[in-house]
Amino acid sequence: MIRTTRRLVRLVVALALLVAGGCATVQPWDRDLLAEKKMSFNPMPMILAVDEHIYFSKEASMGGIDVAGGGCGCN
């Protein structure tokens, strides 16, 4: 259990370093598009939560989006 967690942490850190290490620089005054609400990984959190609830109840997988929300007896 701990070994898998460590491996996962290392993998995420390695992938983060890979993209973080790039030389791309975006100046603050060039972030007009990035500041838009739709430029977020999750621009509609409530609809996403509804979707996640549906998929959690109909499939065997979960996770990836956020830390655990409310539990459910549906699966």
Binding site: V12, L15, A24, L34, G63, A68, G71
Partner: peptide
């Protein structure tokens, strides 16, 4: 009783004026 605990580690990076990427790992026990 049913106990659930989870951990999350994520990173997101702005790559250009138009592009953002992210990676997230989760573990649930």
């Amino acid at each position: 009783a049913k106990n659930v605990s989870n951990v999350l580690l994520g990173a997101s990076r702005i790559l250009s004026r138009r592009w953002m990427v992210g990676v997230t790992g989760t573990r649930t026990f």
